[in-house]
């Protein structure tokens, strides 16, 4: 469905991405992770056609985006959904209007927005403005906005990073349920989520991919320093959880 071939990008003479190859097949959920500033968001931007790479090609549904005009890329983008870390809702529109924004030019169906908002449980609050919502609710609006387009693929750029821990699971749960019948490309640091939901895990460092494979494999036999680090992190959480579970059992 989405293929990135030999993508390289230089910004202000600094190499942001070098020789990235990545394929996301239909129905797959791919999780991308890596330290801050390594180029994760940039990859999403390139996939969406917001940035043109200097080297390499982006193929979406069998079409090379590089060969398309800006207008054609824009049309393609209607088949892609994106959820941002900081929600990016427009403050001057209500919840419903924010969701409708994506449908504004397409086949203006109010129904789709309604479905999307209901699926994240926010139809009741459709008349509120973003400032009247909690962080978790805002992100659910962000998700509804992406879903309203009925996209072929959804990009998630650290959707839980800006949230209070109490809202994180709420969002992860929605993501996990969406993953069952959507193609998703998820940038996140939530390793338990990766382990549970991802078909494939991609580890990145300073502009290049260091390791890629099924999460179970990476977490059990990491082949890179980054892999070891993420495994540690996962184990820490697991240990803590089991410890908590043990204490609970002991009581």
């Amino acid at each position: 469905m989405l293929e990135l071939h030999n993508i390289s990008l230089e910004r202000n003479k600094v190499k942001t991405l070098s020789d990235i190859n990545l394929t996301i097949n239909e129905g797959e959920t791919v999780v991308l992770t890596g330290p801050s500033g390594c180029g994760k968001s940039t990859i999403i931007r390139i996939a969406l056609g917001l940035i043109r790479p200097q080297v390499g090609e982006v193929w979406f549904e069998g079409v090379n985006l590089n060969a398309l005009s800006a207008e054609q890329i824009r049309k393609k983008r209607k088949k892609m959904g994106i959820v941002f870390q900081e929600f990016q809702l427009l403050e001057h529109f209500t919840v419903l209007e924010n969701v409708l924004l994506a449908l504004w030019e397409g086949d203006r169906k109010l129904k789709k927005a309604e479905e999307a908002l209901k699926s994240v449980g926010l139809w009741e609050k459709r008349k509120r403005y973003p400032r009247q919502l909690s962080g978790g609710e805002k992100q659910r609006v962000g998700i509804a906005r992406a879903l309203a387009l009925d996209p072929d693929i959804i990009f998630w750029d650290e959707p839980t990073a800006a949230l209070d821990p109490m809202y994180v699971n709420e969002i992860l749960r929605i993501m996990a349920s969406l993953a069952q019948n959507k193609t998703m490309f998820v940038v996140t640091h939530e390793m338990p989520f990766a382990l549970k939901v991802a078909n494939r895990l991609v580890l990145m460092e300073t502009g290049h991919i260091v390791e890629e494979g099924p999460p179970e494999k990476i977490f059990s036999h990491p082949s890179s320093y980054l892999g070891i680090m993420y495994r540690e992190r996962l184990l820490d959480t697991k240990e803590a959880l089991s410890k908590l579970a043990g204490e609970e059992a002991g009581l």
Partner: peptide, 25 residues
């Protein structure tokens, strides 16, 4: 610029980007 990027990512045309995002903002 983030709102603009969001608008662009949602596939808004330039006119709509101005009408819905840049000008009201």
């Amino acid at each position: 610029s983030k709102s603009i990027e969001a608008g662009e990512a949602l596939g808004l045309s330039k006119a709509e980007l101005f009408r819905q995002v840049i000008v009201p903002d």
